[in-house]
Nucleic acid binder design. Structure first.
Lengths: 345, 345
DNA sequence: CTGAAAGCGCTAACAT
DNA sequence: ATGTTAGCGCTTTCAG
C-alpha cells in the first residue's frame, strides 16, 4: 500500500504538504502542488480512510441495522425500497453504508461504541429489543424507520400512519357492503401492528360495527402465515367476507388460503394488503392495498440522521409521519349478497 | 469515547494488559483479568475498530459494489436475493458488509486502495466498466457475481449457465409447437446477455429453426422496456408466438405489452422469464421462467471471496457455474394452431 | 508557504 | 505475568 510518506519522499516535500494537497487545504505553491499531484498519480496513492477516520474521530459511515433474520427481512420487499431510499441519500452525502444483520439479541449498538459508524438507522425494531434502552438514552445518533413505542419518547423516527391506513381499508370495505372484516395484523411485538389494530377498531366503531375479537389474528409477516391464518378464518362458523392484511406478502398468502378453502377472491372474499410493493400490482388478482412509500421513508430516515449527526447538541427529537393511500385494484369487491343473512343466529 | 488508556488507569494496569484481556491473548493472572473486565463493564468500553483495523492492516469489511443506478438494481428483485446470500455468509464470518453504489464511472476500486474494505464483491459489471482493467490485474481481492468476458481471464466469479438456461426455454417452447420465438435479451453490455443469445441460437439450430435476427431485441431489464419491446414485436408482420425474456420483470412487462396489443397469454403468445424471483409465482398468469438461485449465488460469491482473501498468494483463479432449471407455470402453452400457416408467404 | 512533532486508539515486539 | 516502546497512516498544532 502506498503511504503518504512515500509520496512525500518521492516528491521531496514533507508529509504535511502532501496532506495539504490531498485535502486541498491552506495554500500550497502551484509548483509544489503540481509536483505532488504528479507523484500521487504515478504511485496511485489513495489516503487510507482508516487512518483518516481515526484521527478525525469519525468514520463517515452509517450503519443500517436489520434486527431480524436476514431471510425475513429480504423477503419483505418493502425493506428493499426503504434501503434504496437510504442508499441514495447517503451516497449523495458521500457517506458509506454498512449493512448489519443483527440476529437474535445482538448488541448492535456496539457498532457505534466501536466507532465503526457515526450513526445508525434502525429498521423494524420490535418493542422488546434489548438495545432500545441505550439508544433512547442517546448513546448513539440514530433514527428509526418505525415508531418504537406508542407514547412520546425522545427518539427520532419516520413512520407511516398505519392506523389511518387501515381505517382507509375498512372504509373501502364497508362502502362495498362488508361488515365481517378480519384482520391479519402481523407480529404482536411491533408498534405498527398495534396501530393497525387501533385503526381497525376506530374505523369499525365509526361505522357502528362491533369489533370481532376473534377475527383479529397476530403472526409474522409472511405469505405462509397469511395462507394459514386465512384458512383458519374461513373455517370460522361465521367467516369474514373481507380480510385486511398487515403486509402484501401476507395478503398474497391469504388469497391462496382463501382459494384453498373453495372461495373466490374477490367474489366471495375481499383481500386488502399493506405497503403496495411491486408485487402487488402484478398479483392475481392485482391487489388492493394500502400504499406506504418505502423509498420516501428511507430517504427521510437518512436525511434525519444526517441532520442529527451534524448537531452537536442532539436537538429536539424529530419525527415524521408519512401518509398512506388506499390503492384499489381487483382483490376487493362487493360483499356477497347473502353474507350477512345469518346475523341473528 | 472510552479508550483503552482510561480503562488501564482505572484498573491500575498498563494498556497492554487491557489489550491482552480484551483480545484474550497470552496469559493474564485471573485476578488482574477480572479487575480489568470489571472496569471494562463499568465504563462500557469497546475497542475502537478503526484503531484496531489501522494497526492490523485490515478492516474486516467486504464491499459489495453495485455499479449501476440504485433504482435499477433495487428494482431487480434478483439482486436482493444475491445480497441476502452474501450478507448471511459474511455475517457468519464476522465480516462487515459495505454497500457501495457506484454511479456512472465511479472508480470504486478506491474502496480497496483506501483500505476501507479488504475485498470486493461486484454485482453485474458491464463489459465496458473502466475499473475492470485494474481489477483483473489483481489490484484487489474481488469476486464477480457474473462473468465479465466470454474468454478465459484471471478473475474469480460465480455465474449461472445462461446459455443452457435459455436453451431449456427454447426446448420447452419448441416442444409446445412454437417455431417463431422472440428474445428480449437484455442490455448488450452484459456478458450474460450474450450468453443468453448464444443459448438461443444454439437451441434453435438444434431444432433446425433458422435464427430470426429481427426477433432478437436488446435493452435494459425493466418491465417498462419489456412492455415496449413486446408491443413492437407484436406489430411485426410475422409476430412471434413466444417470447423469452432476459429477466422476470421484463417478462411481466412483456405480458402486459402483449395484452395491450389484443393478444392473450398464453393462448396466443407464450412468455418465459428468467431468474424466478418471488414475483414470478404470484404473477398473472404465474410465470414460466428459468430459475437461477440468487441466494446460492450470493453465498458462493462470499465464500469465494473469503477464500481469496485468506490466500497470501492469490492462487489459481476459481469460478463456479450454477445450473439453471426451467420452471413451467402458466405463461406458456401450445402454439396457436394457425400461427405458422403463413410460413410460405 | 512549508516542516517538525505530537498524537488519534490500538497492537506487537521486546523487555522486565 | 506485566510494562515500555514503537509504530499503523494520517491530521493538526505550532514553528520556521
Amino acid at each position: 500500500m502506498v503511504t503518504i510518506r512515500e509520496v512525500a519522499e518521492r516528491a521531496g516535500v514533507s508529509i504535511k504538504t502532501v496532506s495539504r494537497v490531498v485535502n486541498n487545504t491552506a495554500e500550497v505553491s502551484p509548483a509544489t502542488r503540481q509536483r505532488v499531484q504528479q507523484v500521487i498519480a504515478e504511485l496511485g496513492y489513495q489516503p487510507s480512510s482508516l487512518a483518516r477516520s481515526l484521527v478525525r474521530g469519525k468514520s463517515d459511515t452509517v450503519g443500517v441495522v436489520i434486527p431480524l433474520s436476514a431471510h425475513f427481512i429480504f423477503s419483505r420487499l418493502f425493506f428493499t425500497e426503504v434501503l434504496r431510499g437510504i442508499a441514495e441519500v447517503l451516497s449523495d452525502h458521500r457517506l458509506d453504508l454498512l449493512i448489519y444483520l443483527a440476529q437474535d439479541e445482538t448488541p448492535y449498538i456496539q457498532l457505534y461504541r466501536q466507532r465503526r459508524v457515526d450513526g445508525l438507522i434502525l429498521m423494524s425494531v420490535p418493542v422488546d429489543d434489548p438495545n432500545l434502552a441505550g439508544l433512547l438514552e442517546g448513546e448513539a445518533p440514530c433514527v428509526f424507520t418505525c415508531r418504537i413505542t406508542e407514547h412520546e419518547n425522545p427518539s427520532w423516527w419516520v413512520d407511516a400512519d398505519f392506523a389511518t391506513g387501515v381505517e382507509q381499508a375498512v372504509d373501502h370495505l364497508v362502502s362495498l357492503g362488508h361488515t365481517r372484516i378480519g384482520l391479519l395484523a402481523g407480529p404482536p411485538n411491533l408498534v405498527s401492528v398495534h396501530l393497525r389494530v387501533k385503526g381497525y377498531c376506530r374505523a369499525l366503531a365509526k361505522h357502528g360495527i362491533p369489533v370481532p375479537e376473534d377475527l383479529i389474528l397476530y403472526d409474522d409477516f409472511s405469505s405462509e402465515v397469511g395462507r394459514t391464518l386465512a384458512r383458519k378464518l374461513m373455517e370460522h362458523p361465521r367467516p369474514p367476507t373481507a380480510l385486511i392484511c398487515g403486509d402484501d406478502m401476507m395478503a398474497l398468502g391469504a388469497i391462496q388460503g382463501v382459494r384453498e378453502m373453495g372461495r373466490r377472491v374477490p367474489e366471495d372474499v375481499s383481500v386488502v394488503g399493506f405497503d403496495d410493493v411491486i408485487l402487488a400490482a402484478y398479483a392475481t388478482p392485482p391487489l388492493t392495498t394500502i400504499r406506504q412509500d418505502g423509498y420516501e421513508k428511507g430517504r427521510i430516515a437518512a436525511d434525519l440522521l444526517i441532520e442529527l449527526m451534524s448537531e452537536a447538541s442532539h436537538g429536539v427529537p424529530r419525527h415524521v409521519v408519512l401518509d398512506t393511500r388506499l390503492v384499489v385494484r381487483h382483490s376487493t369487491g362487493p360483499a356477497p349478497r347473502d353474507s350477512n343473512l345469518d346475523v341473528g343466529r
